[in-house]
Design a protein around this nucleic acid. Sequence first.
DNA 1: CGCTTCGGATACGTCAATGTATCGGATACG
DNA 2: CGTATCCGATACATTGACGTATCCGAAGCG
Lengths: 214, 214
Amino acid sequence: MRVRETPETARRVTRRRVRTRARLLGAAFEVFAAKGFGRVSIEEVCEAAGFSRGAFYSNFATLDELFFALYRERADLIAAQVADALAQDGPDLDVPASVDRVTEVLLLDVDWLLVKTDFLVHAARDPAVAQALLDHRGRLREAVADRLSRARGHTELPAVLGGADGAARAVVAAYDGVTTQLLLDRDVDAARGWLKQLLTALLTDGGGVPTRKP
Amino acid sequence: MRVRETPETARRVTRRRVRTRARLLGAAFEVFAAKGFGRVSIEEVCEAAGFSRGAFYSNFATLDELFFALYRERADLIAAQVADALAQDGPDLDVPASVDRVTEVLLLDVDWLLVKTDFLVHAARDPAVAQALLDHRGRLREAVADRLSRARGHTELPAVLGGADGAARAVVAAYDGVTTQLLLDRDVDAARGWLKQLLTALLTDGGGVPTRKP
DNA sequence: CGCTTCGGATACGTCAATGTATCGGATACG
DNA sequence: CGTATCCGATACATTGACGTATCCGAAGCG
């Protein structure tokens, strides 16, 4: 009898399998968003997906594993959308327009922010998970930094931030900060406006509003 | 037999009671910080505090209630410390010095940030809890706004932020943003430096670096 | 110092969630 | 169309967390 080496890679992926896996992930997203990771049982996810627990254990070993997969999937999606939004300008960077588009993508779905924050709390206590999250953030930051540095010369960045990379970090920080507030007051429109304000304040010296002569 | 009206207020607070309550809260803080609210059982808290579950149920009805009390306590403490840090300047506001002191207080204890973020996730799904958190944030923001507006004239605030209140919101957002990063990389020193940078960039037009004449 | 009240410990019943072992229908494939 | 394999359903045993009812020592109070 041949022993199956590296079981994770060896398992053939049937159509049925990917379908149920996807449905489980989708259901998990909804349930996590509604109740929070910490308050969700495996059974609840299965029920929401219309499966029994057997299906779950056939696809994942633990709830953590599912959560990780879920995050990875959605995070990649968002990262791609942000990259798109940044690429839409020509070689010249139109700061307000870019800010608008990115803001639109990043603050589109409150449920995602809920799940993402839950994941943050989770990651904060598990180095391996933290690394995954840091990677995702790194990808976002890089995309922003690239865009900024490619457009240097048109727009002067404030010196304190220390170059395009620093500015990109600032953008991410602003995003995180606004997210926090949004989770509490659930006012997406306010959050968007507010994020735009912050970003323009950070990225343009003098904040885009002509400074009065002293 | 007299029926006890409004049981919560009628219960006399014995010395013993406050002691055990305090020990429970202290233990809860440690356990929550270490494992996260979602993964902690009532029994674990009691064990850490050196009590049995009887003590717990004599003081709290649910883990949520304890968590709420814990947050309230610590948040008040932090708010007071921030107010102190802001009051140490004379009538004139020394931005860099103030930023330093506040940064010191706000990013002192990673465990607190862990617990606070956990509480945020919790609050995001319970309006009543969310209100409490918004109140706390409101207090912080007000303290900052007061300080900023009292020092108007010395330092010009960037116009985009829209006055002292807007600037205060920006400060809080920056704090939240840096917190997120800190939870992942656990680098307190970097976070402090980074928060200082952000704050000076936001609060001083031109970012503390003298703007070149056009 | 003695009585009363309080507060935490103990013991018990209950329940929900977990992981596993097994089964039978569905699916892929020749 | 037949067959081998896969995958999700079902049933079961186990565990651990919960809440309560009761008890006893300690603290307050005269």
